[in-house]
């Protein structure tokens, strides 16, 4: 076998066959590296055993940060640092601070969450992605199985993929 990382790829063309194939493969003790698809397949995270993303928590925390920053900034600037009489109103009054507070909550909440999403998913303009199959972004659903982590014989994995409904079975190696 060649050096680097070697994968067996099960290529599917129907999402429903894929969704029934994944549990079969996993039950037989094979560890699936990842399943790639051109569009989000609903229910795939459940069969792959993925936990729900914690990104909403990140969004909430960043949003709260935005709220806090906006309020501190406005109260400090208008009420403490340089108080000015504007229309005879209070120096610092919460109601007029609501719009800016809301906007900064949304701004920092969404930018923070998207930033976290980019970092944890390793999405960046200069990324060198591992492309298992060029048809993944077109119309094929591809299940990648890492040969190094699975003790099972290669022929056995191929057989399992065949019985579970894969249209094609390919191999792919990356030099790492």
């Amino acid at each position: 076998m060649e050096k680097g990382k070697n994968y067996i790829l099960g290529v599917f063309s129907d999402e429903d066959i894929l969704l029934t194939a994944i549990p079969q493969i996993r039950e037989s003790g094979i560890k699936i590296e990842e399943v790639f698809s051109p569009y989000p397949v609903h229910g795939i995270d459940d069969v792959l055993g993925y936990k729900r993303s914690k990104l909403p928590i990140a969004a909430f925390l960043f949003g709260m940060l935005g709220t806090a920053l906006a309020l501190v900034m406005q109260f400090w600037m208008m009420g403490v640092d340089w108080p000015m009489i504007i229309g005879g109103k209070n120096f610092a009054s919460l109601p007029t601070f609501v719009p800016v507070t809301f906007e900064l909550t949304v701004l920092i909440g969404s930018l923070g969450m998207v930033g976290v999403f980019f970092v944890i998913s390793d999405l960046k303009p200069y990324a060198k992605p591992k492309i298992f199959d060029l048809r993944i972004t077109d119309d094929k659903l591809v299940m990648a199985i890492d040969l190094a982590v699975n003790k099972m014989d290669k022929a056995e994995i191929v057989k399992l993929l065949q019985t579970s409904g894969a249209d094609e079975i390919n191999e792919k190696s990356f030099e790492d």
Partner: peptide, 18 residues
């Protein structure tokens, strides 16, 4: 422009959450 997107199930799940 594609930021190294590969279409993995984990990334899709996060994408949908985002």
């Amino acid at each position: 422009l594609s930021f190294g997107w590969t279409g993995g199930a984990k990334a899709w799940s996060r994408y949908e959450t985002v």
